[in-house]
Amino acid sequence: MSILPQPVEGPAIAAAVALAAWRAGSLSAGGAIAATVVGSVAAMAGWPWGAFLVGWFVTASAASRAGRAVKEAATGDVVAKGGRRDHWQVLANGGVFALCALLAMLYP
């Protein structure tokens, strides 16, 4: 049983995960803010939503770091994407998920 209500605890956990990802270099400042919003919506929809989102982010971050030198050598002159995800990338990858979580809250 949780000490804090889910609408408080969920955003707090989302902010903590986003801060850790920002410090680790996985998110820009704007990406951390967007991740906090997406994560808050997911956690408020229910812990399975939040847990899935965290698992997805950790797996995607690990996959993007794996073989980074080879990928940069192959695409460095074509794609100028840095290692940190910005708010657009967070919303592109998590926006539909957050919308589905919001709809799940509104229409259980």
Rank of each mutant, 00 (worst) to 15 (best):
I3N: 01
L4P: 00
P5N: 00
Q6C: 06
P7C: 01
P7L: 00
V8E: 01
V8C: 05
E9Y: 07
G10T: 07
P11H: 04
P11L: 00
P11K: 00
P11N: 00
A12K: 05
A12I: 10
A12V: 10
I13F: 06
A15S: 10
A16I: 04
V17T: 10
V17W: 09
A18N: 11
L19I: 08
L19Q: 02
L19N: 03
A20V: 13
A21H: 14
W22L: 15
R23S: 03
R23G: 00
R23Q: 02
A24M: 08
G25D: 01
S26D: 15
S26N: 13
S26P: 02
S26E: 12
S26C: 12
L27Q: 03
L27A: 11
S28V: 04
A29D: 04
A29K: 12
G30V: 03
G30L: 01
G31N: 09
G31L: 06
A32Y: 02
A32L: 10
I33L: 14
T36L: 09
V37E: 00
V37F: 01
V38Y: 01
V38A: 08
V38L: 13
G39F: 09
S40E: 06
S40R: 10
V41K: 07
A42Y: 03
A43N: 12
A43T: 12
A43V: 14
M44A: 04
G46V: 00
G46N: 02
W47M: 05
P48W: 08
W49Y: 01
W49L: 05
A51V: 15
A51M: 12
L53F: 11
V54G: 14
V54C: 11
V54M: 10
G55R: 05
G55K: 06
F57I: 11
F57D: 11
V58C: 14
T59F: 13
T59M: 07
A60Y: 09
S61N: 15
S61K: 15
S61D: 15
A62K: 15
A62G: 13
R65E: 08
R65S: 12
R65K: 15
A66W: 10
G67V: 09
G67F: 03
R68P: 07
V70R: 15
K71L: 11
K71I: 07
A73N: 08
A73I: 03
A74P: 09
T75R: 13
T75D: 07
D77H: 13
D77V: 14
V78M: 10
V78E: 07
V78K: 11
V79P: 04
V79L: 15
A80M: 13
A80T: 10
K81I: 09
K81P: 03
G83Y: 07
G83L: 03
R84Y: 04
R84I: 04
R85D: 06
R85T: 09
R85G: 06
R85K: 14
D86P: 04
H87Q: 08
H87G: 02
W88T: 03
Q89Y: 01
Q89C: 03
V90L: 09
L91C: 05
L91R: 07
N93S: 11
N93C: 06
N93A: 13
G94Q: 08
A98T: 03
L99Q: 06
L99K: 11
L99V: 15
C100A: 14
A101H: 01
A101G: 02
L102Q: 05
L103N: 03
L103F: 04
L103Q: 03
L103A: 14
A104V: 02
M105W: 00
M105P: 05
L106P: 12
Y107K: 12
Y107T: 10
Y107M: 10
Y107I: 14
Y107W: 11
